[in-house]
Nucleic acid binder design. Structure first.
Lengths: 165, 165
DNA sequence: CTTGGAATGTCAACAAGACTGACTTAAGGT
DNA sequence: ACCTTAAGTCAGTCTTGTTGACATTCCAAG
């Protein structure tokens, strides 16, 4: 351990440092959502639709229940969003083959097109930020974010990474 | 430049890495807001009240207009929040002495008490995350967050740090 | 000095997206 | 047969965002 991490030199843990971190998180999240929000503003969609599309793309064939756990909203709330996406032909809902109670969700071609448009914008900002800060900083960024998650979310986040990559 | 940052070794900039970063940001932000949300759930307040209280505490005497720029909402939206906080005796609004159109905002003792309760909870999570990840990671975290902000927000974020610390 | 425009803040009405609670339908599992 | 689980629906509420209209105050140009 270096001297910054021990004794009275825990300078990165002062209240002022923590407050600045909180504000940085707040302002950065605004930037993080700004580009997709702008794209969606024109259509009849919002951030809720984006989140659904994102996770259906990440885990094609996921069930409604699984999506519910990832998004942390009520089924009534998700249902409203999902219904419009299905009606508009962006998402397809297939009855489960092994368990017919389940609905498996997939993006249609139109859904994938919108997903790409949204995630291109979001990744472009992320890429610029990553490039500006450099690989070391990115590693630290990821470490702190992970430590900030609730344990449940951290589990789901890891599960997603394993199946995804 | 080290070899990770050049040539074909830009591994931290792959689409998969960026997607994981996006998801980490999403899940971490949920954790970030969870504790204050829980505290506020009981009262008739929400995240919007928290944000107002936070920034009034950070910049006592700030005007409504300045708060508007920080929060990025319409004045009508902020006004509703502010009105309830004033009615409930958490915020005091003083008519400007030099420009009587302006209202200067301050936390009352009750307001400061709630601010402390909310920010204690949020800082506790932040402190744990920082301690877990370590000072190097925290530095990287801050760098990436800053690079993710919109330029306007970055300016305001820096202005806040100068006056605050 | 007056008057018109800009800045600041307030009121009212509405929409999106979250919530709870109650209920239905269909399919599994014991 | 009975209970549970998955999904969907209907109704009502809350928070927080939006627009539009309006009042007050300031300031500067005529």
């Amino acid at each position: 351990m270096s001297d910054v991490t021990t004794g009275e030199n825990l300078l990165f843990l002062t209240d002022e440092q923590l407050r600045q971190g909180i504000e940085a998180m707040y302002f950065a999240y605004r930037g993080f959502t700004a580009d997709p929000d702008r794209i969606l503003a024109g259509m009849a969609y919002g951030r809720a639709h984006h989140r659904a599309i994102h996770f259906i793309n990440r885990a094609p064939g996921t069930t409604v229940n699984n999506l519910l756990l990832l998004l942390g909203v009520t089924k009534q709330s998700l249902n409203r969003v999902l219904r419009t996406l299905i009606e508009d032909g962006l998402v397809e809902s297939r009855v489960g083959t092994v368990d017919k109670r389940e609905r498996h969700l997939f993006l249609t071609e139109a859904g994938e097109a919108l997903e790409r448009r949204l995630s291109d914008a979001q990744r472009a900002r992320m890429r610029t930020a990553y490039r500006t800060a450099g690989p070391q900083a990115v590693a630290g960024f990821r470490q702190v974010l992970e430590a900030m998650m609730d344990p449940d979310m951290r589990r789901r986040y890891h599960a997603m990474r394993e199946s995804g990559a």
